[in-house]
Nucleic acid binder design. Structure first.
Lengths: 156, 156
DNA sequence: CCTAACTCGTTGTACTATACAACTGAAAGT
DNA sequence: ACTTTCAGTTGTATAGTACAACGAGTTAGG
């Protein structure tokens, strides 16, 4: 049953193509949805909250971003009053990042509106299909690494 | 069985989160994989070939990109000798795009490496799961528009 | 201690991907 | 014809990044 290598390849190609297509649109979509909270910043903010505070370096490592990129993103978030930096008393090189009240709030509302958008879009999907799709995505993302193309961070 | 709204929401959240995670890293990952072929251009080129020739406007619509963006991407591809523009004899506004031999070749090799990456990553998936995942992605992406994340150009 | 080496973060610079708006040329409508 | 609409291009501006150079704090070797 599992057979046909061609079928397999066909599916692989579709997955590759569609995932890519999605990625391409995601940016634009997110930008239009929340012009307020820049996409990337949003993600970083979410991570900060998720971790209950973390360092810029952690963010860079987690998202495979250059530290300069993170630095600027954080600066933006700070300017927007969404995160605060608390210098670590033990090591003055480190800044521990935390969401401010406003940051937590912004995060919550963004999350809510995103949920609404997804609800609409997936309105006609059955429970079962949704559950399965979610499962596949989880499986895909956790599989490895970087998600896209395997890209793989050298991370040596 | 149809029901639990909570289950539904749970699935939606997972989908949202995972899809976002994917999109979030996609670019960096793709960039690392093939630094040669200007990233975005690759996708456009693939679409052109897939359609056996198409117009810039089609690309813009498909990827929800501004036509200016597509115009420049195409210009890049042309400069690289990967696509050709053939003015449509019936409608002089239109340029039908086609991959050149070099374009087809570049695409093939890039696709091969991507495919390999996906194969590795999805190696332990069954035919069935792959097919279903592919189908879900197709459905998700074609679903439409309108509301997605709002991406949509109002184009009204 | 004192310097070398390393770490965290910032700043300067540059490039890609985009969007939006204004514009040209070509069809289509009335 | 005259206007609108459509396809594409070009000017301009903005994110998001990377990389390299640097400043400040920490740690290791002598």
């Amino acid at each position: 049953m599992p057979g046909t290598p061609e079928e397999r390849e066909e599916s692989l190609d579709v997955i590759q193509r569609e995932l890519t297509a999605f990625a391409r649109r995601a940016r634009a979509a997110a930008a239009r949805l929340h012009p307020e909270l820049p996409l990337v910043s949003y993600t970083l903010l979410a991570h900060i909250e998720d971790r209950h505070g973390c360092r810029a370096t952690d963010l860079a490592a987690h998202y495979m971003l250059d530290k300069s990129t993170v630095s600027r993103q954080i600066a933006t978030l700070e300017k927007l009053g969404l995160v605060e930096r608390h210098p670590d008393p033990d090591d003055h090189r480190i800044q521990v990042l935390h969401p401010t009240a406003a940051g937590t709030q912004a995060l919550a509302s963004t999350q809510a509106s995103r949920r609404t958008a997804y609800q609409e879009r997936l309105a006609d999907w059955s429970e079962e299909d949704l559950a399965r799709f979610a499962e596949y995505l989880l499986r895909y993302n956790s599989a490895g690494n970087t998600t896209t193309t395997t890209a793989q961070t050298p991370q040596t």
